[in-house]
C-alpha cells in the first residue's frame, strides 16, 4: 500500500535522474554549414543547414532561442516555457514529464529537438526516427554562456550568440570586479520551505550556489554534498546568516515572505532577521539556464552590496525588463526540480 506508492514515485523520479554532465563544446570549425555540434551527452551531430523547425523541451533553451532571434523557428515548446511572453503563444505545448510524447514530436517533423534532462531512451527513439537531438544541460553560469554560443552557431547566427555570450560574461565580470574587495556577508538562500523545520537550501555549486559566490557572498551551506540540500533549522540558526534570500517567495505553493521567516520560532536571534536583511527574489532569475541569469546575478549583488551599485534593485529590473512583475510571474523551472533530484535522489 504505502510501499507501492513510494515505489511508483521512486520509479518516476528515475526518469529525471542526473546525467553525465561534462560540458563538451563543439570547437568552432567554420561559420558555414555543414556544421558539426557535440552536445552535452558527447553526441556529435552534423547539420547541413540551420534548423528551421525546432522543438524545445526546456524553458531555458526556449528563452535562449528567443534571445538569439530565432523564436519563430520553434515548432513546439514544453509546457513550462513561459518566457519571453511570446513563448506562451507557441502551440503545441508538450508535456515533458515524465517523458515527452515521442509520437507527438515525430508528428511535428522537427529538424531539431533540444533537450535538457530527458531520458536517454526518448532521445534514442527520436534519433532512430532520424530526428536530430541536441542535449544541452548547462550546470552553471559559464556552461550557460557556452550553451548560448553553441546554439548561436547552430541557428546560423554565430554573431548573435557571441554578442549574447559576451554580454553575459562581461556583466558577470563587472559584478565580480565591483564586489572584489568588499566584505562577503554570510548568506542563507532558501529554495523551498514546504516543511519549515527542514527547508531546502542552496548548496555549494549549481546556479544558486554559484551566483552567491559571484555576487560576493559567503554561502553558509557551502559544505552541503550537493547543489541543493535539505537542512535543519538548528544549523541555520547556528550559522547565523547576515542575509537571507528567499527564492521561494514566488512559488505557487507555500510561498514564503520575510514576515513568515521572521515569525519562525528561534529565528529571531539570526543577524539577518534582527537587521531586517530578508529579501524575496524572483526565483526563476536565479535558476533558469538562460540570458536572464545575468539579471539574477546583478540582483543578488545589489542585495549583498548596495553600496557598490548606485541603481536600486527595482530600478534595475524596470530598466531591463519593463517591470518587476514580468520577472516575478515566471514560475520555477524544470532546472530547479531536476537539479533538486540530481542531488537528492530518491
Amino acid at each position: 500500500m504505502f510501499g507501492s506508492l513510494l515505489r511508483f514515485i521512486a520509479l518516476a523520479t528515475l526518469v529525471i535522474l542526473p546525467y553525465r554532465a561534462s560540458v563538451a563544446l563543439a570547437q568552432p570549425q567554420s561559420d558555414d554549414f555543414p556544421l558539426t555540434i557535440t552536445d552535452d551527452s558527447g553526441t556529435t551531430t552534423t547539420f547541413a543547414a540551420p534548423p528551421r523547425r525546432v522543438v524545445s523541451l526546456n524553458p531555458g533553451l526556449t528563452e535562449i532561442t528567443f534571445a538569439l532571434g530565432h523564436g519563430d523557428s520553434l515548432a513546439a515548446v514544453d509546457s513550462y516555457s513561459d518566457y519571453p511572453p511570446e513563448a506562451r503563444n507557441i502551440q503545441p505545448r508538450l508535456t515533458a514529464f515524465p517523458n515527452p510524447s515521442v509520437e507527438a514530436i515525430v508528428a511535428l517533423q522537427p529538424d531539431l529537438v533540444l533537450t535538457l534532462a530527458e531520458s536517454d531512451d526518448v532521445v534514442a527513439q527520436l534519433r532512430a526516427q532520424g530526428i536530430p537531438v541536441v542535449k544541452m544541460f548547462p550546470k552553471d553560469y559559464d556552461a550557460t554562456i557556452e550553451t548560448v554560443r553553441t546554439l548561436g552557431r547552430l541557428y546560423g547566427s554565430p554573431d548573435a550568440g557571441e554578442a549574447l555570450a559576451t554580454d553575459m560574461s562581461s556583466r558577470r565580470d563587472a559584478v565580480v570586479a565591483a564586489v572584489a574587495d568588499a566584505p562577503r556577508p554570510r548568506v542563507y538562500e532558501e529554495l523551498d520551505a514546504s516543511q519549515p523545520g527542514m527547508p531546502f537550501a542552496a548548496g555549494p555549486n549549481g546556479f544558486y550556489g554559484q551566483l552567491i559566490d559571484l555576487a560576493g557572498g559567503t554561502n553558509i551551506f557551502a559544505d552541503l554534498p550537493g547543489d541543493v540540500g535539505r537542512v535543519g533549522a538548528e544549523s541555520i540558526v547556528q550559522r547565523d546568516p547576515e542575509v537571507i534570500i528567499l527564492t521561494d517567495s514566488d512559488l505557487p505553493f507555500n510561498p514564503q515572505s520575510p514576515d513568515m521567516v521572521r515569525a519562525r520560532p528561534g529565528w529571531s536571534v539570526i543577524s539577518a532577521v534582527r537587521n531586517g536583511a530578508i529579501y524575496a527574489v524572483p526565483g526563476s532569475l536565479y535558476s533558469t539556464p538562460g540570458p536572464r541569469l545575468a539579471l539574477g546575478l546583478e540582483d543578488l549583488a545589489r542585495i549583498l552590496h548596495p553600496d557598490r551599485f548606485p541603481e536600486s534593485r527595482v530600478a534595475s529590473f524596470e530598466s531591463r525588463v519593463g517591470s518587476r512583475e514580468s520577472t516575478m510571474v515566471g514560475e520555477r523551472r524544470t532546472v530547479f526540480a531536476t537539479r533538486d533530484f540530481a542531488t537528492r535522489g530518491p
Binding site: F8, I9, A12, T13, G197, P252, A337, R344
Partner: peptide
C-alpha cells in the same frame, strides 16, 4: 495512492512538487 501519482503527473507544476511530495511521504518530524 495512485490518485496522488495521477495528480502529480497531470499537474502543470509537477516537477516542482514531486520532490517535495516524495520527501514528505518518506516522513519527517515537522
Amino acid at each position: 495512492g495512485y490518485a496522488v501519482s495521477f495528480l502529480l503527473i497531470v499537474n502543470d507544476r509537477l516537477q516542482l512538487n514531486l520532490p517535495r511530495v516524495y520527501g514528505w511521504l518518506l516522513g519527517g518530524i515537522a
